[in-house]
């Protein structure tokens, strides 16, 4: 029990996360090998010079049995070697600067682009939390009113229903036609010019946050309603606690449990959705890069991007699980349901 129990729980969750990631890596490895054509042609493109093909064959031991190839590939990946990006500029979309990326190690390109995506995800998550959770609490606490019930249901259906790219397109239109202080495109790294950076990032962040906001609002509302119906809330009322005390001491803490779980869901959405926001607002991030790679059939980048995203997602889920167990100590004993 106590801290030891928590430690054991954490180790179990960690092991399970690693297991999941191994599954993901096998899936990705298999998928790439299922693509028609030889591995070298898939990874390097059909026009690659023979020397490059030979290098790749040697690196991954392509003449060895698949399990050995997988091990080599995985070890290289874990060592930070994600391969080399392919470049066929005539098929690229947008202003994907192929000249710069040409033959650059994928990991360097990821590192260069990660800050924009991470900033975008953090801003979107912050907006979703700061707007969605208070809205949900308010809706949950005032659910006695029919009007509040109806309108919160309609708003959440709308918020979860409006695709981010539709909202983003609307933003692009409104903010390109009218000068409202926020820029569409024109990304500048945060370290260079924070103000210009924020001007450029607010719109993509709002676009990306809308789904999470609705998700948080809805989850929080349902959670508050569920907690309010719990016997310990009635017990607190019977002990003469005031509504404020009850909300602060009991409702928020207990309602936080499903909200933490949903944060992980939202994070997953952010990882995928970032591609849309980056594309719409020309933010040179990770998602856009992987998207362009899909268009170009640059499987080396796609495979690396998928793995990195899966690692990020599983890591976030693991954190959510660990946080969950702190808020709701019952989790540890119950294990996973």
């Amino acid at each position: 029990m106590g801290y030891l129990g928590y430690l054991r729980f954490a180790m179990e969750r960690l092991a399970s996360a690693i297991l999941t990631l191994l599954g993901v890596s096998i899936l990705v490895f298999t998928a790439i090998h299922l693509i028609p054509g030889s591995y070298e042609a898939v990874m390097l493109g059909p026009q690659a010079p023979e020397a490059a093909r030979e290098r790749l064959r040697e690196k991954y031991g392509l003449d060895d049995p698949l399990p050995q190839q997988y091990m080599r590939w995985l070890l290289a990946f874990l060592g930070g070697d994600m391969g080399i990006a392919l470049c066929r500029s005539q098929q690229s979309i947008g202003q994907q600067a192929c000249e710069n990326a040409d033959q650059a190690p994928i990991i360097a390109e990821f590192a260069r682009r990660a800050p924009a995506t991470i900033q975008l995800a953090f801003m979107a998550a912050a907006i979703a939390n700061l707007v969605g959770i208070p809205l949900g609490i308010l809706a949950g606490l005032s659910a006695g009113s029919r009007t509040v019930r109806g309108s919160s249901r309609a708003i959440s259906a709308l918020g979860m229903g409006i695709p981010s790219f539709v909202l983003g397109t609307l933003f692009v239109y409104v903010f390109s036609v009218h000068d409202l202080g926020l820029t569409v495109g024109g990304y500048v790294p945060l370290s260079e010019d924070p103000e210009a950076n924020l001007r450029a990032m607010v719109l993509p962040a709002i676009t990306l946050s809308i789904f999470g906001t609705a998700l948080f609002a809805r989850t929080t509302r349902d959670a508050v309603l569920t907690v309010l119906a719990e016997p310990f809330i009635m017990a607190a009322v019977a002990r003469g606690e005031s509504p404020r005390q009850i909300v602060r001491r009991h409702v928020l803490r207990n309602a936080a449990i499903p909200v933490v779980t949903v944060s992980a869901v939202n994070m997953g959405y952010l990882l995928g959705g970032a591609a849309i926001a980056e594309l719409l607002f020309s933010v040179p991030g990770f998602g856009w890069y992987v998207l362009a790679a899909i268009h170009k059939r640059d499987y080396a980048v796609v495979q690396a991007g998928v793995l990195v995203a899966a690692v990020a997602f599983v890591a976030v889920n693991l954190l959510a699980d660990l946080a969950y167990a702190i808020i709701d100590p019952r989790t540890i004993r119950r294990g996973r349901g």
């Binding site: 599954g23 990705v28 790439i32 997953g268 990882l271 995928g272």
Partner: peptide
């Protein structure tokens, strides 16, 4: 199901479409 859940949905879509 856990393994499939490990992929964010849009990303899973992206990789499947890529393949």
């Amino acid at each position: 199901a856990d393994v499939l859940f490990a992929f964010p949905s849009l990303l899973l879509g992206l990789i499947l479409v890529a393949i």
